[in-house]
Nucleic acid binder design. Sequence first.
RNA 1: GCCGAGGUAGCUCAGUUGGCAGAGCACAGCCCUGAAAAGGCUGGUGUCGACAGUUCGAUUCUGUCCCUCGGCA
Length: 342
Amino acid sequence: MSRTEEFVRFKPVVVVVGPTAVGKSRVAVRLAKRLQTEVLAADSRQVYRGMDIGTDKPTLEERDGVPHRLIDLVDPDETFNAGIYRRTALPEIDRLHREGRLPLVVGGTGLYVRTLIRGLCEGPEADPTFRAELEEEARRKGAEVLHRELTRVDPKSAARLHPHDQVKIIRALEVYHLLGRPLSSIHQRHGFGELPFSPLLIGLMRERKALYRRIEERVDSQLARGLVDEVRGLLARGYDRRLGSMKGLGYRQIAAYLAGDCDYTEAVRLLKRDTRRFAKRQLTWFRKEPGILWLSLAEDEPVEQLTNKVLAMIEGFLAGLGREAQANKQSGRMAAAGVTAG
RNA sequence: GCCGAGGUAGCUCAGUUGGCAGAGCACAGCCCUGAAAAGGCUGGUGUCGACAGUUCGAUUCUGUCCCUCGGCA
């Protein structure tokens, strides 16, 4: 069987995850070069054009000739979400398989990774008008009314969601509004049980202290590279602070400073703090994601050494591909697809 | 050396007319199915500077000592 036939048949996908600033991008470029493939980003912020420094998008030089896909997909005032990501990513993965290349997904957006390897339920597209109406209603009558409304139409979702979690309450109401069926029933049917690929999940990790130090260093570097000017430019082009894209790390805090909400020092402090908290949330998410093989990086781990480690894992994974795919078919939907949890 | 102010959570501090100490920040744990770098939830045992005394009981009152910061020498 040729490599292309094998890839098309077993659909292997290598996924590298980990918290922000752990060092994913650097190793990704080297892996892609050695595998003669491309980098598929799983990053909800790098999809925005013109948001480069704040999202720590690799520069052309850093990409070193390796094509990076799934970045620069939309302008900052366009909607983007997990569903759009998945629909855009699947054809790229398919294309690489047909070219006999191993898809290499790299990113820190846990939900986006999950929509690739375990699917996404058949929910309706977001409805901005309806959302705006609900937000207005909550503003007028208080936040609790939405949760009460959800208790009426979808008690299961209401019980699961805290009354303060307006974002998710609105999504649940939106699903009922558009479909006439509760979100909970759609979730129940789906259960993240799809297994469209044979994934190899590799998680990169560092000691908490070392990770936090790297985060601070990266924020300093982003500021030195002109983060403030980038944010100023986006605002000048009319991208409002209230846009979802402008609520991301870096943009939110610097826009607050530029608007005079706080001084520069405070903005930097908050940006570092919020990035630390974000990394912590990512770790919580990935820790419970089944099937991740974790690699703990040493403080001074050379990138080449890490690349070799990961390549060795990939070789083993590819060698067992037919067998693993067979086993998965037999053990059905519950299988964690090709790897055991670490 | 003398005079004053203070030593309480990782930090900044509040407080107890004597009854097993509390806020902000920091931090930690968690949830998540088309907003996910978003959004939400939970978590406070700390020799109340040390030792002795008074008291049923002291972080609180008394004494001595140690340390920090001012001022005067």
